[in-house]
């Protein structure tokens, strides 16, 4: 079934959505709650997830914290990462997959560990956000360690166009900054220190009066 239909022309148009063409693998076993007896979980990950579970009246609330922890460890929400989190939480891996695929920050395909989210939403695009994304992508090239993505509004339109580099907001950016940004990242330097939001004063002159 697989080979013949992919060649059919009519599948060439319309939007493509990853996953929609996928069949299950009938040779696999059904994905039930992983048995701790046969699913090894790194101690630190287990401790992180168990601590998160203890914070909430219902342990399921720890799904997102558990996925954050598993992604931090494995670099992405790999099947192994999800199975380990599911094992600790006593949930099916499916439960966590449903959650992971819903949220933009969880990567369900392997990606580079260095995150660069470039905002392309309205305020940034009015000031060149989309061009900025292209510039950063070009500067990043095909470095497998980099994960450059266009992102929806990151909540920093005051420094539009902007990007979040491993969580650090930088802007306003100009296409010329792209090379520097990537270079800083590759060299392990602080990224564009002058443009970091964390160092920026409030725009409201009234708020600064005797600050």
């Amino acid at each position: 079934m697989a080979e013949q239909s992919s060649a059919v022309a009519r599948y060439g148009h319309g939007s493509r959505i990853p996953g929609w063409d996928d069949s299950v693998d009938l040779s696999k076993d059904p994905a039930v709650v992983p048995d701790p007896a046969t699913t090894p979980v790194p101690d630190e990950l287990r401790a992180q997830i168990e601590a998160a579970m203890a914070k909430y009246p219902n342990f399921r609330s720890a799904a997102i914290p558990a996925l954050h922890a598993a992604q931090d460890l494995h670099g992405w929400c790999s099947p192994t990462a999800i199975e380990q989190a599911a094992c600790v939480m006593r949930l099916t891996p499916g439960y966590l997959t449903a959650v992971a695929t819903f949220y933009d920050m969880f990567e369900t395909k392997p990606v580079g560990r260095q995150r660069v989210y470039v905002c392309t939403n309205i305020s940034c695009s009015l000031r060149g956000g989309k061009e900025m994304l292209e510039a950063v992508k070009a500067a990043a090239g095909d470095d497998p360690d980099l994960n450059v993505r266009g992102f929806e509004c990151l909540g920093a339109c005051d420094i539009a166009p902007m990007a979040s580099v491993n969580g650090e907001f930088v802007g306003p950016l100009e296409p010329a900054d792209a090379e520097q940004l990537i270079a800083d990242l590759k060299e392990g330097r602080e990224v564009l220190p002058d443009k970091q939001l964390s160092r920026r004063a409030c725009a409201d002159p009234g708020a600064r009066s005797d600050g």
Partner: peptide
Amino acid sequence: QLILNERGASSFVGTFDGHP
């Protein structure tokens, strides 16, 4: 075992990692 993957118009019914 049966879940909704992705979001919005990309949502689709499936399972974890291609398990039946």
